[in-house]
Computed example of a mutant assay.
Amino acid sequence: MTGLKILHIEDDEQTAETVRDSMTIAGDSVTWSSNGTDGLRTAASSEFDLIILDRMLPDMSGIDIIGKLREAGVDVPVLMLSALGRTENRIEGLDAGVDDYLTKPFEHEELIARVRALHRRASGQAHSAVIIFGDMECHIKARTAHRQGQHIALSPKEFELFKYFMQNAGEVITREMLLRDVWNLNFDPQTNVIDVNVGRLRRKLEDGFDGAIFETIWGAGYRLLAR
């Protein structure tokens, strides 16, 4: 897989050069924005295959930028780079809507591998624009959720959860699966982040409608039911 068009939003010139050199060697082209304002403007005015986003920028945080990107309908994969590598830092970034999180300093090979993996995942979902299960619809490209024809407003992470449940509708989804496939974590951070987010999603999808659509299977996980 070569020839990706990448936007890199990063204020540190040395890091920007490192990323550019790595991805150019891999056959990709990189457009660099040195601050969040320019990065948002560039992301909205041109089409990119992937965005690499620094967490700490002089004019706004990467957490704020990912929210603005998603609000503006920019749904390309986003890889966040940060010197903040604690578990809670990664969870905060992933909860905000980034698709992967890589700490600095990083190896060139890992950066390239993460970019390739993100693009493969996004490309694999492109053929399925809408997933329908029971009275629910998941519009992947528009990143919207509907039940009985009504739009359900979801945060970026809630939408990722909803999409994952819809893609695995009727199957038992374990905490380990959610940590690995939605939060991109290969370990349990020993927090209630999954229970909190599933609870929020459940309330939004069930309040005002007849019948529960989430089944909690104690000791196992959750299952999405059709109504």
Rank of each mutant, 00 (worst) to 15 (best):
L57N: 02
Q150P: 06
L224G: 01
R70F: 08
D59H: 04
L185S: 04
N89K: 14
I152R: 00
A129N: 13
L154S: 00
F159M: 07
Q167W: 14
E71P: 03
D21H: 15
Y101H: 03
G85M: 09
L178A: 07
D135M: 03
R121K: 13
K68T: 03
A44G: 06
R200G: 00
Y222Q: 05
I66C: 02
Q148G: 09
S34E: 15
E13A: 10
R147Q: 04
E160K: 13
Q190L: 14
W32T: 02
A169H: 11
P189F: 12
K204H: 02
S34V: 10
F159N: 05
G67D: 03
E137K: 13
D95S: 09
S61Y: 08
T191E: 06
A145D: 02
F48C: 01
E206N: 08
T18E: 12
Y164S: 11
H108Q: 15
E158T: 01
I6P: 00
E107H: 08
W218Y: 15
P156I: 01
F165I: 11
T216A: 14
H146A: 04
L111D: 02
P58K: 13
E171H: 11
Q150S: 09
G170N: 07
S128V: 15
D188S: 06
M177N: 14
I9D: 04
F165M: 07
F214C: 01
A153E: 09
T191Y: 04
N35F: 09
L102C: 01
E17S: 08
D195M: 13
L94R: 05
R90L: 07
G39V: 05
A226Q: 15
L178R: 07
I217G: 03
P77W: 14
W218F: 15
L118S: 01
A26F: 13
N192V: 08
T144L: 07
L94Q: 07
E109P: 04
G36M: 06
A153M: 05
L205G: 00
T191L: 02
I6K: 03
L40W: 06
I65T: 03
D95A: 10
E176A: 09
F165L: 11
L224N: 03
I65R: 02
H119L: 07
K104N: 09
K5F: 11
A113I: 10
W218N: 13
A126H: 11
A72S: 06
A153L: 07
F106I: 06
S82A: 07
I132E: 12
A212S: 15
H127D: 07
I6W: 10
F214K: 00
Y222M: 06
E17I: 15
L84F: 10
D11H: 08
S46N: 15
E88N: 13
I65D: 01
R120C: 04
A142M: 12
G208F: 11
T18K: 11
